[in-house]
């Protein structure tokens, strides 16, 4: 319940945060909403020596659309994302997924940047970002770097983010025909299995698709077999056969009290189909 002691600095700007990160070295961690980090600190599973508060920095805020590309600032909360009319209209999968993360209080504090950087294997948004082929914008001492979401998520709690870098935002192409479906662990509300599907539809036919899973494995990742099977498939009828092998294709599957490997593999197929059907229903 009680974290270990740490030094605290409030950054007045992203630039200042970067300087503080460099000075702080490996013991320094960024704090925005804190809803990934603080629970770990309270259990003393995380004991950072320095917290750099970047909560509420204007530079990291905002949701904008430019020529069909939507950009979300890292410090936007899940609640703000869920309430965004822009997202509801142009990328409803993002608003809907955000609206179902944790609970109202968590959504009011937790940020998209924090969620992506922490990369909890049960977090929802990473799968959505991979499916949308989102670009994650990072800022470091050497300037800005952009990483595709599918490359950003590397392993459990592990992302392509230097210790001296900050996630500043994420951007992706507007996409209506995309949906996320999850099997929720009822207590923690993490995804036991969550699948995001983003489809390019031509009438009832899927011309191409990106499908990503979270919860089932160490990190959010594409289901390329499913994507291949979807290309040219007629939907929604073809969803089931395209999804059928989704779970078996995973090379590593999480296991715990709430779901064995076998169950999660099976549920990956089920929720892949459900996500595809829901996405197709939007087309």
């Amino acid at each position: 319940m009680i974290p270990t002691a740490f030094e605290y600095r409030k950054a007045g700007s992203v630039a200042e945060a970067l300087t503080l990160l460099q000075e702080g070295g490996p013991e320094a961690k960024l704090l925005a909403g804190g809803h990934s980090l603080i629970p770990m600190m309270k259990q003393r599973l995380a004991e950072p020596g320095l917290l750099i508060d970047i909560g509420g920095l204007d530079e990291l805020r905002g949701i904008q659309e430019t020529d069909g590309e939507i950009a979300i600032g890292a410090a936007m909360t899940h609640a703000e994302i869920a309430a965004s009319d822009l997202l509801r209209a142009q990328a409803p999968i993002v608003a809907e997924t955000a609206a179902n993360i944790g609970d109202a209080q968590v959504r009011n504090r937790g940020t998209i940047g924090g969620s992506l950087a922490h990369a909890d294997p049960g977090a929802d948004l990473p799968a959505v970002m991979v499916a949308l082929d989102a670009t994650i914008a990072l800022l470091g001492p050497n300037g800005e770097r952009k990483v595709q979401a599918e490359d950003f998520f590397q392993d459990i709690l592990t992302v392509d983010l230097g210790e001296d870098e900050i996630v500043t935002g994420v951007c992706f192409q507007a996409c209506r025909s995309a949906a996320y479906a999850k099997l929720e662990q009822r207590a923690s509300k993490f995804a036991l299995v969550g699948v995001a599907a983003a489809l390019s539809l031509d009438g009832g036919t899927c011309s191409s698709a990106r499908v990503a899973v979270t919860g089932a494995s160490s990190h959010a990742q594409r289901l390329s077999g499913v994507e291949g099977a979807l290309a040219g498939a007629s939907l929604p009828d073809g969803a089931a056969s395209a999804a059928a092998g989704a779970g078996e294709a995973l090379d590593f599957v999480n296991e715990d009290l709430h779901g064995s490997e076998e169950y999660r593999r099976a549920m990956t197929a089920v929720f892949t189909r459900r996500a595809i059907e829901a996405a197709a229903g939007r087309g």
């Binding site: 319940m1 605290y8 409030k10 704090l31 804190g34 809803h35 603080i38 629970p39 309270k42 259990q43 917290l51 508060d53 909560g55 609640a79 609970d103 109202a104 209080q105 968590v106 009011n108 504090r109 207590a187 923690s188």
Partner: peptide
């Protein structure tokens, strides 16, 4: 609780509900 699940500590911060056990006073 100590894992941010129970909500007994809920307060409003700038008008929005938050679990005050998962916020540092400095924040």
């Amino acid at each position: 609780c100590d894992t941010s699940q129970c909500g007994a500590c809920t307060v409003l911060i700038d008008g929005h509900s938050a679990k005050s056990c998962t916020v540092f006073a400095v924040q």
